[in-house]
Amino acid sequence: MSVGPIIEIKSLQKTFPGQTGKITALQDINLQIMEKDIFGIIGASGAGKSTLVRCINFLERPSAGTVFFNGHDLSMLSDKELRKARQSMGMIFQQFNLLLQRTALANICFPMEIAGYSKAEAKERAKELLELVHLADKANAYPSQLSGGQKQRIAIARALATNPKVLLCDEATSALDPNSTASILALLKDINEKLGITIIIITHEMSVIEQICNRVAIIDQSQIAECGEMAQIFANPKTQAAQKLVFPEKSVSAQFQNKAHSIRIVFNGNSSFEPVIANMVLTCKAPVNIIYADTKNIDGKAFGQIVIQLPEDKTSAERMIHYLKARDLAIEEVGEIL
């Protein structure tokens, strides 16, 4: 682990000239992204996510503020140095952006051609990368012959070609079906663990963040509303923007406010995936009402949340809470107990 953050954003601001005066896309953004983080940036459409990620590799020049990459202030670099720095930051996109007239293999060779690798060297590394993304058999396929998920895998291989330190993902799974999304996210996690690459994920879907991020920033109306450990924010969203994202169907808390004895159980990957509620009911020998449930099994760990209504009987209710707490589950009361 290095001392400083790999990416540090300080009082960043970005405005665009618009027809009716300036459009502020980003305002007073401060972020620190540590090495080997999988850092999620989530927000509604138009919040400024794409603009933020494009400021990180200076595809968009900030109007004010600084971006440090590996300790270097990007605004101080010459054009040539900046292009060099970009070779250490891979990027993948919602629309894949593959070269349509090149084969998968040639697409992966592309950034290496730019960086001045020899043809043979590039080809060899491209083949290794095809293995890494499990598409060795598609080397000679053109993008038009690949599915969305496969295209994104090629794009990931391409982004990794020049051994970047950071991988920027702008809505990388938004054009994919749930299965492809899950497999792309698993691949990204794998890359993060195996190659130690820092990953920054832009998304508007909380489920994406839940599945792989360790830290998250919530961006709302051009500003960072909340930023911190993913588990903490997920268990205890403070701002309204965060709550909206954690409870996609309006606010679950608000919805069940008047239902007595309701609690929200948060699974943030600390517990293994097991039928917790069923076991609890069996152990405590009292029934509960499941009001809302949305859980996922990721790598054998449980993610998501369940809202249940505890039994009227106070002792049973307490035993249940005790049972859940013993399993290291975060619990939030959404309707008053008693």
Partner: peptide
């Protein structure tokens, strides 16, 4: 596609490289 050009820029391609490649 502008996105493809942007991808090339994100890889550090120079103007000449974007034209030729």
């Amino acid at each position: 596609d502008k996105g493809v050009i942007e991808a090339a820029q994100s890889m550090g391609a120079s103007t000449m490289q974007i034209i030729c490649k």
